[in-house]
Design a protein around this nucleic acid. Sequence first.
RNA 1: UGGGCUAUCGCCAAAUGGUAAGGCAACGGACUCUGACUCCGUCAUUGUGAAGGUUCGAAUCCUUCUAGCCCAGCCA
Length: 563
Amino acid sequence: MAEFKTEDGKMEKETVSKNFIEQIIEKDLQEGKCETVHTRFPPEPNGYLHVGHAKAILLNYGLAQKYHGKFNMRFDDTNPTKEKEEFVESIKEDIKWLGADWEDRLYFASDYFDQMYEAAVKLIKKGKAYVCDLSPEEIREYRGTLTEPGKESPYRSRSVEENLELFENMKNGKYKDGEKVLRAKIDMASPNINMRDPIIYRVAHMTHHRTGDKWCIYPMYDFAHPIEDAIEGITHSICTLEFEDHRPLYDWVVREVGYEHPPKQIEFAKLYLTNVVTGKRYIKRLVEEGIVDGWDDPRLVSIAALRRRGFTPESIKSFVELCGVSKSNSSVDYAMLEYCIREDLKLKKPRVMAVLDPIRLIIDNYPEGQVEELEVENNLENEALGKRTVPFCRELYIDREDFMENPPKKYFRLFPGNEVRLMHAYFVKCESFVKDENGNVTEIHCTYDPETKCGTGFTGRKVKGTIHWVAAPTAVEAEVRLYENIIDEEKGVYNEDGSLNLNPNSLTVRKCYVEPGLKDAKPYDSFQFVRQGYFCVDARDSKPGALVFNRIVSLKSSFKLPK
RNA sequence: UGGGCUAUCGCCAAAUGGUAAGGCAACGGACUCUGACUCCGUCAUUGUGAAGGUUCGAAUCCUUCUAGCCCAGCCA
């Protein structure tokens, strides 16, 4: 029981450095600026979540966990023109799947509409907000440009009483959309355009998916968000870089409305995957034109797509952690994601045999009609995954790439006269092969050596190659889908004529043969197909008796067949 | 050319004035009932976008450049 063997000089030191957000939080904690950590993930329910969102979710949730704080789920539903109930359900599902637990703290910005209205009234009373009658075009003109200051609205100096009355009228539906807005009175000459009397409430006669027709005015993000955070007691409001310019306004709102414990906004860089498109417009077009079969098509990187493809929540979590958090715009190589899923699956999932491109192999000296049930480990590295049996007989399928008539140097697999091991079974020697009229190999004839059976401890001679196989009579026919990245990046998403720039080989579908044991596989079951990579049973298209496997990721191969 | 932000190996990313971590990828090699996995090794030697400066000492501080990203929705 040598449990505590210490090896000098080999101290496993955890050198995981803290990211800049953790540093800020720890400083705030130390200095007593906050007592606990409370974060949130605040999506607008206007679409599906993708890997980029996973970073925000896991970051916020992870921070709450790490500092024993809380994590809120909140839908930022302040613009009914874009939002749908459908999206709130899919977002909740994806976040749950990722493992971020908001416990009982599921909120909606629309729950706070009354408080936001009161906050606006408060600002008006303080002389910090006014109702403006300028048209959208005029507001834009008055706002100035990036290089020139704006000019003040003629309605800027309305009395508090008048503003109060007009704002109430706005709420009561006396005005049409666009007729009036409520603006914060800040500084039309600010170099930061967000501070040039930003609009904080607009009129929109729209049915909201949760509040129905109760409201016809809706708060703008810049006004609503800090209030939502403050109401929920969020200590660190983590968002993406493009909101940096909004921070002064965020702080202004929190200060002027008068919250005692103001939340702090911290910005980080979004996660981009190199050569992967996450744009909603583009994906929408792919879906609408039937090029992909939905928002969860495995070629996409929505959370739902990754799930369907066979990625695990753990793999996405480790991916996000591996990427790190910083403020520099960057895009991470897809290989990093592949590494994470391989890493997660390789010890957890059975290594089974599947033949993707079959050729028939006949063992001439094996008794006709005989079937052996070979007992094999599900995963050589992980005994806990147990054993299964695989039938072996005279006629097998092997992969076409495992036989060559004229092999190049260092080709260890089957070729005339060569002997290889059939994985988990016997040594087999290629005696002859048959070609069809087109010159394609259709049948390989071998002889086997009964002495060499797996598990007998045979050491008489060695063989350089081992190949996988499936017994022909009992093989289960399945479909495999091999996915490639859908976009060829260099050229961009759209061609010059406006058509989509697609990789024509983004999806290859073919029939394959798998071990009979796999006929009972369930959706989301994943396996390592020996030498072919990791595959997951498609959770959408797979019906009993009609197995469909999506390739999660291929294995690295250090032997490339010459062309 | 107003304001905000960023710049460290092919890709992420540490280093908080004390002499450039780590991971991915790549490349060698060992091992192997698959060439995967695993394991070992190599991969920023006047080099941290550039040029100057301060300092015993600079990726870190100062100056001046350069490049990229974001902002002129009644979107978030």
